[in-house]
Design a protein around this nucleic acid. Structure first.
Lengths: 333, 333
DNA sequence: TTGTAAGCGTTATCAT
DNA sequence: ATGATAACGCTTACAA
C-alpha cells in the first residue's frame, strides 16, 4: 500500500496537481470551492506531501545534522535537547551521529550528512583539531558548539572556560586553599586547555606556585585512577569536569580521605546528577541546554542567510558551591 | 558554490550520466578506461551523489526514524547508541525525535518522520497507550522498543519485566525481608504494570500480604517526595527504576534512616551511574544497549522484507546485588 | 558496453 | 484563478 501522491489527490478532486500544491502550501489564491474539494480528497486519501520530492525540487531538506562525540555521555544529550527544542519550532528535524571521539568517524559522518543534503550542521567536535574542517567552503552552514579550533573564528557557541575556571579557583582561594592539583581532560582538547589557562591564571594572580596539572581524560574512570595514584593530597583537587570529579571523590573515599574535610574537590559542568551526588558536588555550572538552543538559533539564522551580526556567542558560567568544598583552616604545606 | 552534479561529472569525463551512475554504483560493467576517466572527474570536482535525488528515484532513504520520550533521561541515549552502532554498519542514518512523554507530540513526530520517507521506525513509546498506532497499515516497518501495548503482538524488542522484578523480590525474600513498599512509575505505563505484576507474583508465592504499591513516576524527584512522605518504613522499598531509587535513598538519608541497615532499597535498570551511587545500588540490570541494537537489527530485517521468523525479542535481565540491600535479622512487623 | 529517455513526486514558470 | 509543462538529480529500462 503505497502512500498516495499529489496526482491522485488532484484526480479525485478533479483539478490539476498545481492546484493541489497551491492549496496545500497556500502559495497562491485558489477558489474556495476547489479548496474544499481538494481538502476533502486529501482527507479521504490520507495524503501528506512527500518531503523527499519537495526537498529535491526546492533544494532544501529542513533537516539539520548534529554531530556529537557520544550520546551516552550525559553532557551531550542536553545540548541535543536544547537544539531540538528550538529546531522543532522552526520545522526542522535532526539527523544525529555519534563520532565516538574519533576524527575519522567525524569526517565520515560529516560527508554522509552533507550528501543527505542537510540544510546545516551543528558540530560538537570530539576535541582534537579537525583539519578536514579547515578548508571547507560551506563552513558557512556549520555552527560549532562547545568546542572550537584555532582556525574557527566565527559561527560558534561556547562557554567562557577560562573565566569559569578562574572564578572557580578564586572561590577556592577565598576559602584559604594553598595547594592544588588539577585533574584535567586530555591534552590538546579545547576545553581542557582553556580550563587549564583559567586555572593557572588564578593561581598566578594569587602568587601560588604549589600546584600540579595532570591531563587524564574526561571520565569517571580516569578520575578514579588518577586520584588513586595521587602521592600527595593537596588542599584542593580541581577537576576538568564533573565526571572526573565523581571518580576522584570515590577514589578518595576508598583511600579513607574525607571530602571536603581533608580535601576539597570541584567539578565543571554541573550535570543533572551533580547535585545528587554524595556529597553534592561544588562545580561550575554550564548552560548546556542553552548551548544547544542558541547554536540551533544561530544556525537557522545562517541558513536563512540573514545578515548575522552576532555569530560568536559566548555564554556565561555560574559557580555552584555545594558540599565538596570547605574552608581550609590549618596550613597543609 | 553549489555541489557538482552527475551531469557535470559526465560532461567532464566525456560520457553519459548513466555511465557515471554505473561506475559509482558498480551497477553494471564499464570499460576500464572510462571508469578511470569518470573517477578522475569525480575526484576533480569533489563529487558525491545527491542522496535526496537518489532517494526519490529509488523510493528508499536509508534513514531510520527514532522516537524516544526524552534524550535527557539517561536510559534512552543508551538505546539510541545501540541502534546507531548497528545502523551505521548497515548504512543507515538516524532521524531523532523526543516526544517529551507527550502523546500528541509522539503522533506529530510519527507523521513528520513518515512524510520524510524514513525507511523504518524505532519507536520507544512514552508509556501510555497510543491509539494512533493501532490502525496503521505500515506498522510493518515499525519496531517497538522497551514498551509495547496490548494490541502490539509482533515486531518488538523488550525485556522480561515480570520475571525481572520477580527475581529481584525473590532475592529480597531470601534476605529475609518481610514487609514491602513498591514505589513505581506512573499507573498504566507498560513497564510499571509489568513490574508490579512481577512484584505481586513473588509476594503471593511467598504468602506475604504486607505490602503497598505506590504509583509515583519514573524520576528522582518523585522518588524523593514519595519516600519523604512514607509513614511506615518497611523492610524493603522496591523501586520501579533506578532514578526513583536514587531519590528514595536520598530522602531516607535526609530522614536519618540508614540504607541498607534500616531498610533495603532496590532499583531497576542499572544505569551507568548506579554502581557509582553511594551506596552502590542493588538493581536489576537491563541490557539497554542491546535493546537498541537488537531492535535496529530487527528493523533492518523487516525493511529488507526477509521472512522474519523471530519478530518478538525478549531480552533477559540480570540481578546485580550491591550495597543498598542487606540481610534482615530482626523482625520489623 | 554505452547512451537515450522516462520517471520518481514535487514546485515554479508560463500561458490561458 | 487554473492548468500544462519543465525541472530538481538521480537510476533504470530499453535501444543501439
Amino acid at each position: 500500500m503505497k502512500a498516495p501522491t499529489m496526482k491522485q489527490v488532484a484526480q479525485m478532486a478533479g483539478v490539476s496537481s498545481s492546484t493541489v500544491s497551491r492549496v496545500i502550501n497556500h502559495s497562491a489564491p485558489v477558489n474556495e470551492d476547489l479548496q474544499k474539494k481538494v481538502m476533502k480528497a486529501v482527507e479521504a486519501l490520507g495524503y501528506s506531501p512527500d518531503q523527499i520530492a519537495r526537498s529535491l525540487r526546492k533544494g532544501k531538506t529542513n533537516v539539520v545534522g548534529v554531530i556529537i562525540p557520544n550520546i551516552t555521555n550525559p553532557f551531550f544529550p542536553v545540548i541535543v535537547k536544547g537544539a531540538e527544542d528550538y529546531l522543532r519550532k522552526q520545522n526542522y528535524l535532526i539527523m544525529l551521529g555519534n563520532s565516538d571521539f574519533d576524527l575519522k568517524m567525524e569526517k565520515k559522518l560529516f560527508n554522509t550528512l552533507k550528501a543527505k543534503n542537510v540544510d546545516g550542521l551543528l558540530f560538537v567536535g570530539s576535541g582534537g583539531r579537525t583539519p578536514f574542517i579547515d578548508n571547507l567552503e560551506n563552513r558557512k552552514k556549520i555552527v560549532f558548539v562547545d568546542r572550537i579550533y584555532e582556525n574557527i573564528e566565527k559561527n560558534y557557541v561556547i562557554v567562557d572556560n577560562i573565566k569559569g575556571m578562574n572564578d572557580l579557583v578564586n572561590y577556592l582561594l577565598d576559602l584559604n586553599h594553598k595547594s592544588f592539583v588539577m585533574i584535567n581532560g586530555k591534552k590538546r582538547t579545547y576545553t581542557a586547555e582553556k580550563r587549564r589557562e583559567g586555572f593557572e591564571l588564578a593561581l598566578k594572580n594569587a602568587n601560588i606556585s604549589q600546584y600540579e596539572i595532570i591531563y587524564s581524560g574526561y571520565s569517571y574512570e580516569k578520575g578514579y585512577e588518577t586520584a588513586l595514584s595521587l602521592k600527595e593530597i593537596p588542599d584542593a583537587v580541581v577537576c576538568g569536569d564533573d565526571m572526573i570529579a565523581f571518580g576522584v571523590i570515590d577514589a578518595l573515599k576508598k583511600r579513607g580521605i574525607n571530602v571536603p574535610e581533608d580535601v576539597s574537590v570541584t567539578g565543571f559542568d554541573d550535570l543533572t546528577f551533580s547535585s545528587k551526588f554524595s556529597p553534592p558536588l561544588t562545580t561550575m555550572h554550564q548552560p548546556i541546554y542553552e548551548l544547544g538552543f542558541e547554536a540551533a538559533k544561530l544556525l537557522v539564522k545562517i541558513i536563512n542567510d540573514k545578515q548575522i551580526k552576532k555569530n560568536k556567542i559566548i555564554l556565561p558560567t555560574t559557580l555552584v558551591p555545594r558540599k565538596t568544598t570547605a574552608l581550609r583552616l590549618k596550613k597543609t604545606s
